[in-house]
Design a protein around this nucleic acid. Sequence first.
DNA 1: GCAAAAGTGTTATTAGTACACCCATGC
DNA 2: GCATGGGTGTACTAATAACACTTTTGC
Lengths: 237, 237
Amino acid sequence: MVFKNTIAAVSPVRISAVPFRLGRAGLSVAVHPVGEGGQRLPAGVPAPAEWLDVAARRIVRERVGSHEQYLEQLYTFGDPATEDRTVTVSYLALFRDHERHDEDSAGLTWMAAREVVLPSEMDRRVLDYALMRLRAKLGYTNIAFHLLPPTFTLSDLQLAYEAVLGHPVDKRNFRRRMIASSILEQLDEKRRDGSHRPAALYRFASRDDREAYLTPPWAMERPEVVAESIAASHDSQ
Amino acid sequence: MVFKNTIAAVSPVRISAVPFRLGRAGLSVAVHPVGEGGQRLPAGVPAPAEWLDVAARRIVRERVGSHEQYLEQLYTFGDPATEDRTVTVSYLALFRDHERHDEDSAGLTWMAAREVVLPSEMDRRVLDYALMRLRAKLGYTNIAFHLLPPTFTLSDLQLAYEAVLGHPVDKRNFRRRMIASSILEQLDEKRRDGSHRPAALYRFASRDDREAYLTPPWAMERPEVVAESIAASHDSQ
DNA sequence: GCAAAAGTGTTATTAGTACACCCATGC
DNA sequence: GCATGGGTGTACTAATAACACTTTTGC
């Protein structure tokens, strides 16, 4: 007997995003103010014939008013508490602080992550998970770069790590690790911005992030790489 | 202006699972035969008022005919190729070989992973990703245990790793690492199963998997502190 | 006694951690 | 000349990787 993959029921599908950036106040999230001092995460609905990841990108850009530097699907929640069996697909989005943001493009504001108050249980779950993933990924990917401008100093980079992690890291060990990783490329210019020694400027040496792990290669759009990696995962016996 | 999180459209939501177990032929997948030598991954639809993870568990148990040892959500795909905008939520499921499986409970059969032929593009994506995640997780979690019976020898465990990874690992380093991790507990009994020295039997010392996210040591500080800091970053100031 | 799998240590290399002072600049 | 952040090295410890022989059993 062969089972039919029958599709019987339908559910509303919702996309919910956590847009992060690094501001003067540290790690910030873009939220919609709602009610008395509460906020809600930006969300939306995919259009017909639209991949979820494409829909997420569109929704994030519409709401935030600028282009994200990084987008990653997190987790999908089915909430039985909702009458209509809403399914929420959550995304993490990273922005550069220096990019122009139409602050009020959609009633959206950037708030320090620790000051956000989310009345929605689902929103809290999504934010918690996004933060956890972001922190974890600092350790084994170059994800932090997506929060920084194209050129930056090692101190900038370290501050980014500390802002996300929530605790200080050792300067010498940090710099050694970063330089050893050889994803940084030192520029000739230096940045002079105060009464102190100028800081060397860096940029990323390579475009291809190795966020390989949790993000499937085909979920990121790099056709050639995708094919190879999928092939390899079967061959390697 | 405050944006409404309007839920306008609905989509069929489908759950697709990759049930793995370790058999004599190495890593096997449970599939439905379909067409001429092709297969399809087991799939189903969530019921009303059912969490996705609960639905996935139910579907996997119905199809495979026994209880999975481990279940994890993988990725959610919106396939614009389907007329009705089907959304597929994919899951990884691990089974113990020795459990009784109603082989034909739903026309389902276990096949060596490398021999599976999936006509569906979506099915191939899901299987590829499941395998990638399973392999990656071997390295930093005790996920392999869910593929083994309650008691096992170190050789069993090593064979499990090798079957999933697809390459041999060093016996002495493997045993040292496993024992050092102190998640194993040696039993008094030994297993005699051939004309050779009997092997010591082990079981898992703890129930709680630490699939703790890939948290690098230097991002960690002390465990409690991290927990606090995650909490703190949400509690409104 | 021999086949078959279990079990066991050492060495070399690499990665991580802790820690404190001098350097270049603007004012 | 002093305040400010930029930049540097060393010693200790822990983790990883490579590598081959002895032990216990069934027959």
